[in-house]
Design a protein around this nucleic acid. Structure first.
Lengths: 144, 144
DNA sequence: CCGGTTGTAACCGAAGATGTTACAGCGAGG
DNA sequence: CCTCGCTGTAACATCTTCGGTTACAACCGG
């Protein structure tokens, strides 16, 4: 499995919370979410902790503690999730600075930065158009 | 160093080869390319080896050996480079299979696959619209 | 055959992701 | 105000990947 499943875990958790909320079970513990995602509760706590900092979920302490959505599923976009969990961009520049004596080495970084930035903007626009409610709806339609 | 710089290295190498070719120095050794990218010649050989398998560059052995473009810089798109070096998609699914007893766990993977696939398609379309010649032109215009 | 370069294997260290254990902190409810 | 359950986080163990390095056989033009 290629790296970066954090986006997937976060979206899965939010979709599950949205469904539970709709079923009248609004507060979930990290263990309950972890059971659906099939991972360790600490992974979920770390993930939901990021989402909480972004204001997407709320947490309750004490007896009967747990997590709940901070707003309607329709109002949570994948772009917000993407930013909340600090996803790294799809392309990176050179590991070590290129040779600036070479005309290509000198100009390639700004050129590629602009180029990569444009692609990233397009991706952000697509992510912004999709909400957790959309994902949940699509998820509940069983398909091969 | 954050992530995947392979795309950057490949594009840098091709742009540099395109410029050298235009200057009448069509055949470059891996050491010459490595000097511009500022990395080890083996890294370049591995990278150009991938590009050769995709038919984007040619290699010559024996005395005076080295690499040259297999076609005009205008005819090499970033999508071809992307595919040649086997870039991994920006998002990955779950590390371990989610709980299929849960309606979300059951349906989330196909839903996210479709979603991620759509985003990837958009990205591919953008990459296909940019050639090495475009990158070289942009690179040679020094800009802050 | 020689000399220079490719093609690859083997290996290293750093970094990041995932998972696990352990434990202090918090607060709702008795 | 004490208890209990869950959060929040540190620490740590793997595992994988990546960039880098060394070494060496294969190749071929001259």
């Amino acid at each position: 499995m290629s790296a970066n499943s954090r986006m997937t875990v976060a979206v899965h958790a939010l979709a599950w919370m949205a469904l539970a909320e709709r079923r009248g079970h609004a507060v979930l513990t990290s263990a309950e979410v972890a059971a659906s995602v099939n991972t360790n509760p600490v992974i979920i706590r770390r993930c939901l902790g990021d989402l909480r900092e972004a204001g997407l979920v709320r947490v309750r302490h004490g007896t009967g503690a747990g997590w709940s959505l901070a707003r309607a599923p329709e109002a949570i976009t994948l772009l917000q999730v993407h930013d909340a969990i600090g996803q790294q961009p799809p392309f990176g520049l050179h590991a070590s600075e290129p040779n600036l004596e070479c005309p290509v080495g000198k100009g390639i970084r700004p050129a590629l930065s602009r180029l990569y930035g444009g692609i990233e903007q397009t991706m952000r626009r697509e992510l912004a158009a999709i909400s957790i409610a959309d994902v949940l709806r699509d998820t509940l339609q069983a398909r091969p």
